[in-house]
Write a protein that binds this DNA or RNA. Structure first.
Length: 423
RNA sequence: GGAGAAAUGGCAGAGUGGUCGAAUGCGGCAGUCUUGAAAACUGUUGAGGGUCACACCUCCGGGGGUUCGAAUCCCUCUUUCUCCGCCA
């Protein structure tokens, strides 16, 4: 959520920047500013009414104390009108504040200056590429075929137990999955991220805090009986640790990593592109989250990008890094780098990580602040990234590492899974 | 799930209708003393809105109500604790 004070100050620049998202925010901003003026006028009126009524109450108290009951009762009559009007003003204010909030919720984050205009993922800019694309044997298979051949992932069984998009990992498949989680967590903790385990269900306030609610309501599984949501990413519970917190600037950088399953409804997604592990309703992910001083958040973003690179390099997977264009940029993000691994047998790139700086967009909703040099409270910057999302990394490994004899396990993972071949 | 108790500032803890945004202690910060530190002493120390700055308004778990006036009374929700039941 954007800050009202910033909208007032930078309206013109914001309108230009939001054009990159193909949004004309001008009318929206005008409405907001007008409503805000109305809000503040109403607030002032209410404050004045309350001030009068407070001082009257004090006087009445004094009169009662000194035994001047008749005068006190006379004065009581005066408060009736004030009470009525403060009640009305209060109700008006609530209505205005709700409308204002609703409008603010609808505006996405302002894209960073490096973000290019664009309409879809085809306009994303490749900024880095590394790793040789392996030459596969003639009869190379996509990962869903390999999964069946070596009996390591059972999609049909998942359908039986739950439904499509909930695979069952078996034997070495399950072990490889566990190995990846442990490996990622180790890499992240080595890079200074504190490992943390968080709830997999979150309340409504948390959903609003990180921006999944209200706009992406349909993306999350909702447990109605308790009004809780299954997390679509660890970002939600981990970042919400800091909801309503004021941290000390000396605590920066705050770095957390956590493994969680992620649940996404992905309504309406079907077809070849969602085959196998390409898109699931439940998947595992190891996330990194940072809370930073505004001056250092872009340096932090670069560090996160380098960190994810180092993992993919060690896994020896061919990958590329994209800077998302305005049209593909997430609602809450100011700048996002996507990582894609090349899936050789499918001959396409698969997104395996998304690293973003949200600047103050989430912090404003979260009321996540820090005490600055002058002792003033300032909104902090929040960032997060996947390091990494499991299923597509697994798909990449299965497809890129397949041989006549079976699937070779990347060297870095052998100590974690205890075998070198899936055969 | 049943019965009871409770929720106050960074923490502990007073406050049961009227100068209470809130005693006191601890912690934090600044100062005095000291070569330095500790101790002691003095001062200071919640958040949000609003203002050039004041004034002023709001917040004592959340929401609603009673009252001229609520941290204090009532309703409701949430959470915590104790006892019972159940249980990995």
């Amino acid at each position: 959520m954007l800050q009202l004070s910033q909208i007032r100050e930078h309206k013109a620049n914001y309108i230009i920047a939001l054009k990159k998202r193909n949004i004309d925010a001008a009318p929206h901003f005008d409405q907001i500013i007008k409503l805000d003026e109305h809000r503040r006028a109403t607030q002032t009126e209410l404050d004045n009414t309350l001030a009068t009524s407070n001082s009257l109450s004090k006087e009445i108290g004094q009169l009662f104390k000194t035994g001047k009951v008749a005068e006190a009762n006379a004065m009581k009559a005066k408060t009736v009108e004030l009470k009525e009007s403060s009640k009305n003003l209060g109700e008006q204010l609530n209505v205005i504040a709700d409308q204002l909030q609703e409008l603010l919720y609808q505006i996405p984050n302002i894209p960073h200056e490096s973000v290019a205009k664009g309409s879809s993922d085809t306009d994303n800019e490749e900024v880095f590429k590394e790793g040789a694309i392996p030459k596969l044997m003639q009869n190379a298979l996509p990962h869903w075929e390999l999964a069946k051949k070596y009996d390591i992932i059972d999609f049909e069984l998942g359908v039986k137990i739950t439904g499509a998009g909930f695979p069952v990992y078996k034997g070495k498949g399950a072990r490889l999955q566990r190995a990846l989680i442990a490996y990622f967590l180790d890499k992240n903790t080595q890079a200074g991220y504190t490992e943390i385990q968080v709830p997999h269900l979150v309340n409504e306030a948390s959903g609003y805090g990180t921006g999944q609610l209200p706009d992406k309501e349909g993306q999350m599984y909702h447990v109605q009986a308790d009004n809780l949501y299954l997390i679509p990413t660890a970002e939600v519970p981990v970042t919400n640790i800091f909801r309503d917190e004021i941290v000390n600037k000396d605590e920066f950088p705050i770095k957390y990593t956590g493994y969680t399953p992620c649940f996404r409804r992905e309504a309406g997604s079907y077809g070849a592109h969602v085959r196998g592990l390409n898109r699931l309703h439940q998947f595992d992910k190891v996330e990194i989250v940072r809370v930073e001083h505004p001056e250092h958040s872009y340096q932090a973003l670069d560090e996160m990008v380098e960190h994810v690179k180092s993992i993919l390099r060690e896994l020896e997977l061919p990958y590329r890094v994209l800077r998302l264009c305005g049209g593909d940029l997430g609602f809450t993000s100011a700048l996002t780098y996507d990582f894609e691994v090349f899936s050789t047998a499918q001959d396409r790139w698969l997104e395996i990580s998304s690293v973003s700086n949200f600047e103050t967009f989430q912090a404003n909703r979260l009321k996540l602040r820090f005490k600055d040099e002058n002792g003033k409270n300032q909104l902090a910057h929040t960032l997060n990234g996947s390091a990494l999302a499991l299923p597509r990394v697994l798909a990449g490994i299965l497809e890129n590492y397949q041989t006549e004899k079976g699937i070779q396990v990347p060297k870095a993972l052998v100590p974690y899974c205890g075998f070198e071949f899936i055969d």
